[in-house]
Design a protein around this nucleic acid. Structure first.
Length: 467
RNA sequence: UCCGGAGUAGCUCAGUCGGUAGAGCAGGCGGCUGUUAACCGCCGGGCCGGGGGUUCGAGUCCCUCCUCCGGAGCCA
């Protein structure tokens, strides 16, 4: 039996690097366009390995030339032929077909056409949209960013920790949770007071989908030094914005024996590594985004790769914003959470490049952030970047047992549920720090795409869980 | 959840003052000396988001609901 593995075909991106002529080349992919004239038919075939695809020429001598000329967009084909220099403009080489096997025809109602579609429509056919120029490029870049993430941390000796998806506690009070339950919703068991008795649920108590792997990964840092987690995260927030999804991916590194400045150093190096890698590895796709999605994108990213990021305290940021003369919808004052409009103005206008804002008032930050000596701020940092706003949020963690316990109590969280977390502060605690990066935010930043639903393969948002 | 905008052919859209529903692309058929979002000709294609109202008459005006988009909040 003949094998149909990868060995029997070549990726188009690789074929394009060969110097013609080359006989006996086999490519397989999907037809993007068909142009037919009396003698010749031209197919643009794309296998997802690059943006431009390969021009295939079906000449008169081809046995099934008639059938090939009637191929519809979206059909799957396997082509054997000779790679030759192209006599026409538009491409350097083309594949002169000696055989075209029609592997899978596309019905005439194939929804993708040889023209621009709106992103809104393409979201309704998320199972097919990876076959378009834009989404193919998005998902190649997304892949490159994921790979670059692992390379960056692995090269620095970080251990990849798979933190759990199902959790028992509302980790940090970060947003609404999705409950995980196997109880019968029609008739759940009830206690004496008539309330649902969650102790009879699958795990013997209430469980939820994770909103952050941070607390779990912290415990690994306090034993394995440098670690990171990279996985799906879930928020049941009813947000209708272009920047929020109910299911998204998050990268959370955590380092022991590290302070806030070291945390910023890592965040800056990581961001630059991602940007540099994607410019190098996805040059064709990035040029496409630069031309069709956001003019000046490549230049903007290059500047990020070379700039040194500004660092300023929250207090200074507030002073700069107050003194900027800019009118804001929401007032700026010490103690206020920086609004999206403030963050954008700071990084885009006042600083003009990425900026770390550090040392926020402790009232507006999470309980686990380390209290500063001034007693009113915590060792938190946000990385703000032009166009997107907050890209990374991190902090040095509170390593002092009693201070942490008091913070949990002050936040009105159940101390019992955090006993395991507090344990790490009793058994060899160390200063440690980490941050979280919403992966889709990074993909948006790198591609210039404006909507989170267009950078994740199958977006989940309130009221929408198709595919 | 709040504020704003939009729903017309498979897609992208036009539709004047309220008076019989339009184009381009896609699809089908044919033509064309190697095309580049090819080009030329012909053909098929509509619950004008749903419901209610005003009117002799509603895609168009009013009410209501739904969905989508943008922004805000929440956050990543």
């Amino acid at each position: 039996m003949q094998s149909l593995g990868q060995g029997s075909r070549r990726r188009i991106v690789d074929v394009l690097t060969l110097s013609p002529p080359q006989e006996g080349i086999v490519v397989k992919g999907w037809v993007r366009t068909v142009r037919t004239s009396k003698q010749v038919a031209f197919l643009n075939v794309n296998d997802g390995s690059n943006l431009s695809g390969l021009q295939v020429v079906a000449g008169e001598d081809l046995e099934n030339r008639e059938e090939v000329g009637h191929l519809t967009t979206g059909s799957a084909v396997a082509i054997t032929g000779t790679l030759v220099e192209s006599p026409a403009k538009g491409q350097a080489v083309e594949l002169r077909a000696t055989a075209v096997e029609i592997v899978g025809k596309a019905d005439p109602d194939y929804p993708l056409q040889k023209k621009r579609h709106g992103f809104e429509f393409l979201r309704t056919i998320a199972h097919l949209r990876n076959r378009t120029n834009t989404y193919g490029a998005v998902f190649r870049v997304r892949n490159a960013l994921a790979h670059a993430t692992h390379c960056f941390f692995q090269d620095r000796g970080f251990v990849y920790v798979h933190t759990p998806i199902i959790t028992a506690s509302d980790c940090e009070g970060a947003g609404e949770l999705f409950r995980v339950s196997t109880l019968d919703p029609e008739s759940p068991p009830r206690n004496d007071q008539g309330q649902i008795d969650w102790s009879q649920d699958f795990f013997g108590g209430s469980t939820y989908l994770t909103v952050s792997g941070q607390l779990d990964v912290e415990t690994f840092a306090l034993g394995m030094s440098d670690v990171y987690t990279f996985g799906p995260t879930f928020r049941a927030e009813n947000s209708h914005t272009s920047r929020h999804a109910s299911e998204f991916w998050m990268i959370e590194p955590e380092m022991s024996f590290c302070d806030l400045a070291g945390d910023c150093d890592l965040a800056e190096a990581y961001t630059k590594h991602l940007v540099t890698t994607v410019l190098e590895r996805c040059a064709e796709d990035m040029a496409f985004f630069d031309e069709r999605v956001e003019k000046g994108l490549v230049e903007r990213l290059r500047a990020v790769a070379e700039a040194s990021f500004e660092r300023m305290t929250y207090a200074e940021a507030v002073r700069r914003l107050e003194g900027s003369g800019q009118e804001f919808e929401y007032p700026v004052y010490f103690g206020a959470n920086l609004q999206a409009e403030h963050e954008r103005h700071l990084t885009e206008t006042l600083v003009g490049r990425p900026v770390f804002v550090t040392d926020y008032p402790r009232e507006i930050k999470a309980f686990y952030m380390r209290r500063n000596d001034d007693d009113r701020t915590v060792a938190a940092m946000d990385l703000l970047v032009p166009k997107v706003g907050e890209l990374i949020g991190g902090s040095q963690r509170e390593e002092r047992h009693d201070v942490l316990k008091a913070a949990i109590e002050a936040a009105k969280l159940p101390v019992e549920a955090y006993q395991w977390y507090l344990d790490t502060r009793r058994f060899g605690t160390t200063p440690h720090a980490g941050f979280g990066l919403g992966f889709e935010r990074m993909v948006m930043y790198a591609t210039g795409m404006q909507n989170i639903r267009d950078v994740i393969p199958f977006p989940r948002t309130p009221g929408n869980c198709l595919f």
